[in-house]
Amino acid sequence: MDLFFQLLINGIIVGTLYGVVAMCFVLIYKSTQVVNFAQGEFLLIGAWICWSILVQFEIPFVFGFLLTLAFMAALGIFIQMVVLRPMIGEPIISVIMVTIGLSIFMRAFSNWVFGQDTVGYPDVFGTSSVNIGGLQVQPAYLMSFVISLIIMAGFFYFFRYSRHGLAMRATAFNQQVAQSLGISVKQVFAMAWAISAMVSALAGVVVGMVNGVSSALSFIGIKVFPAVILGGLDSIVGAVVGGLIVGVLENMAEYVDGQFLHWGNMLTIAPFWVLIIILVVKPYGLFGTKDIERV
C-alpha cells in the first residue's frame, strides 16, 4: 500500500506541474489563438539556460533563476514578434506548422549547444529527501509542488483582478472590442508569450532538478496536450484539472501495471487512452466553453 500512496503523491506533484505548463499553453491559445506546439521546448531551453548559468558561470541559484526568467521573457517576446506576428491572418494550419517548426528548431538547437547527455543540476538543497507522513519526498518535488501552487494562485489573481489580466481576457474575447477599450493587442500578445515562456521555464528548471536536463524534457510538452484537451483548450481552470488528472492517472496506471498487469510502459500510454475516451463523451473537454447565448 505504501507504493500506492507514494505513486499517488508523485502523481499529484507531477500533475500540478503538468497543470502549470498546460496553463501556459492555454494562455497563449486563449489570447493569441495560436496552438503552440513548442511549449515543451520552452521547458527545455529554460532548464538548459538556468543550468548553464549555474554550472558554467557559477552564479548563485537565486540570481541564476531570475536571470533565466528574464531571458525567457525576452525569448517569448522575440518569438512572438519575429516569428508569429507576420503570421497574423494566415490560416490556422500554417500557424501550427510554424510552431511545430519552432519546436524542432529549438530542440535541435539545444542539442547542438548543450549536447545530448543528461546532466544533473548542482545540489541546491542539503538533503536528498524529506519524510512526510512516512513517505519519502524529494525536496525538489516539494518545491515544485509549492511553486506550482503559487503560480496557480498568481494566475488566478492576475486574471481576476489585475488590469493587464482583464485586458488579456478582453483580447481573448474579441480583439476589436479590446482595441475600442484602449488595449494594445500587440502588447497583450507579447505579454502572453513572455509569461508563458517564463512560467514554462520555471517548470523546466524544477523538472531538471529532479530528473536532470536532457532533450527528453521537451516530452512534457507532449504530455501536456492530453491535459489541455481534457480540460478544454480555452479554460485555465480546466488546464489545472486536466494536468492533475493526467499526472495521477499515469502514476495509477503505473501502479496497476506494476502490481497486476505487467504489460509495461503504461505510464506513458494511459493518459492518451483516457483522453480519447473523454473526447468521445465531451468533445469540448471538461471545461471548454461554448459561446454564451441568451434565450
Partner: peptide
Amino acid sequence: FQVMEGRRIVEDMTVVENLRLGAY
C-alpha cells in the same frame, strides 16, 4: 471612447470586471 453598435460587452466577464476594463 466609442460604444460600438451591438453593445459589445465582454460576455464571459462579470459586470464589475467589464466596468473595470473601461478604466484600463
